[in-house]
């Protein structure tokens, strides 16, 4: 089976002051299409770095990053930006919504980069908000939403351009247990019923239990892979 996400011999080095710190050491990783993978590991293990490489937000110091058949390490800055716009949805721990825009305007943002007209954009926005159950909050600004609602808006924004891959960085890290479970159920639904491939970084074992696979990273290397019991 061809991997949907493939990392080959990835080395990532950051420069901190005069010191070069190698975060990932010849990492190899394959994720098949339609999988829901949880990336776990202690702080500094390189989880977010792996997520940034898969999402095309960062480049490896060496090695190959292939996602959906595209070699991301070979794309130019603008090429990578365009690729992200069409292929990836991002969900962050702190939602990262634009505070001055309403929920629907936030969700519409990725569509501004497409050739869709206003009516088509609005239709897609309504659909995305319906998927996350927030049609009635479309006109509300982030400050008028609860944490769970804000994260649902962020998920709607990630979904609206119908990407094949969702990358989620601690999507429940700022939520209480009940709300976190609602968000995780939603992600699971998107994976199972909409076929989205999801890569999620989490510290929370209960969150990881919602994924189909869990990968453990430590000191920049993959140490363990496990199949999670479906939550």
């Amino acid at each position: 089976m061809n991997a949907f996400v493939s990392l080959r011999d990835i080395v990532k080095t950051y420069t901190r002051g005069k010191q070069a710190v190698e975060v990932l050491h010849r990492l190899n990783l394959d994720i098949p299409q339609g999988d829901f993978v949880a990336l776990m590991g202690p702080s500094g293990s390189g989880k977010t770095t792996v997520l940034n490489l898969i999402g095309g937000l960062d480049r490896p110091s060496s090695g190959e990053v292939t996602v959906a058949g595209e070699r991301l390490d070979r794309l130019s800055g603008s090429g990578l930006a365009r690729w992200r716009a069409h292929n990836i949805g991002f969900v962050f721990q702190f939602y990262n919504l634009m505070p001055m825009l309403s929920a629907e305007r936030n969700v519409e943002l990725p569509l501004l980069l497409t050739s869709l007209n206003k009516e088509q954009r609005q239709k897609n926005v309504r659909t995305a908000l319906a998927v996350v159950g927030l049609q009635d909050r479309a006109r509300h600004k982030p400050s008028e939403l609860s944490g769970g609602q804000a994260q649902r808006v962020a998920i709607a924004r990630a979904l609206v351009s119908d990407p094949t891959l969702l990358v989620c960085d601690e999507p429940t890290g700022d939520l209480d247990r009940a709300t976190a479970d609602e968000i995780l159920h939603l992600l699971q639904l998107l994976n199972r019923e909409h076929g989205k491939t999801i890569v999620m970084v989490t510290h929370d074992q209960k969150a990881a239990d919602f994924a189909t696979h869990t990968l453990h990273l430590d000191k920049g290397q993959l140490v363990e892979a496990s199949v999670a019991a479906a939550a």
């Binding site: 930006a81 716009a85 991002f90």
Partner: peptide, 16 residues
């Protein structure tokens, strides 16, 4: 800065 970073994350190019 974080909001501009989000726009870039969503696919806005540096020039955009």
């Amino acid at each position: 800065v974080p909001e501009l970073a989000i726009l870039k994350t969503l696919g806005f190019t540096d020039t955009a």
